[in-house]
């Protein structure tokens, strides 16, 4: 047994290293041109290339939700999509929510309800609440719990997060 997977390594003509190309990403209303290889995820592009580290990596496999951003207003896992596939889409990260120093109501509600502890899942949770409001499908408390289940909080702040989400729905504080 090798760490190298011999079967797959021998197939086809594989480039030794991928070529980079200019990738245009629209993030929080700003257009960025980056030199990226196709193997860079949106998440790694944000964190390692744009220094927008507000979006977190918690698993890199779509199993935790820490990397949640809004893509044209809808929430997605930024770890599971390639930067080259998201050109010319509007990406909103946690850094793009406050306007002129004024927190987005959902950000303020997270503080007021103490809906976090370590804060690492928080940007993803905030984007997820806003996405949930935008998507308009949550009607009941159980809907909220289920539709917020894509964001794991190991500190266990769910009770307070759900309270924020309820309030955001009532006040319709989307993007």
């Amino acid at each position: 047994m090798n760490t190298e997977n011999s079967l797959q390594a021998t197939t086809a003509v594989r480039p030794q290293l991928p070529d980079t190309r200019t990738v245009t990403l629209r993030v929080n209303g700003t257009t960025h041109q980056l030199q990226l290889a196709p193997w860079t995820s949106v998440l790694d592009a944000l964190r390692e290339h744009l220094q927008l580290t507000g979006t977190k990596k918690g698993c890199d496999h779509g199993q935790c939700g820490a990397c949640t951003v809004l893509l044209d207003g809808k929430r997605i896992n930024s770890c599971l999509t390639l930067a080259v596939m998201q050109e010319n889409k509007e990406i909103t990260t946690v850094e793009g929510l406050a306007k002129e120093g004024e927190l987005h109501p959902v950000q303020q509600a997270f503080i007021d309800h103490d809906a976090f502890q370590c804060g690492y899942c928080t940007p993803g949770q905030i984007c997820s609440v806003i996405g949930m409001v935008n998507e308009g499908k949550a009607k009941t408390l159980d809907d909220i719990r289920d539709l917020m289940s894509g964001n794991i909080c190991r500190c266990g702040a769910y009770i307070n997060i759900v309270k924020v989400a309820q309030e955001a729905l009532e006040k319709n504080t989307g993007l």
Partner: peptide, 12 residues
Amino acid sequence: NRVDGRAKVTGE
């Protein structure tokens, strides 16, 4: 409220 709350909800 947490004094580090703002830093945590803004990604700073």
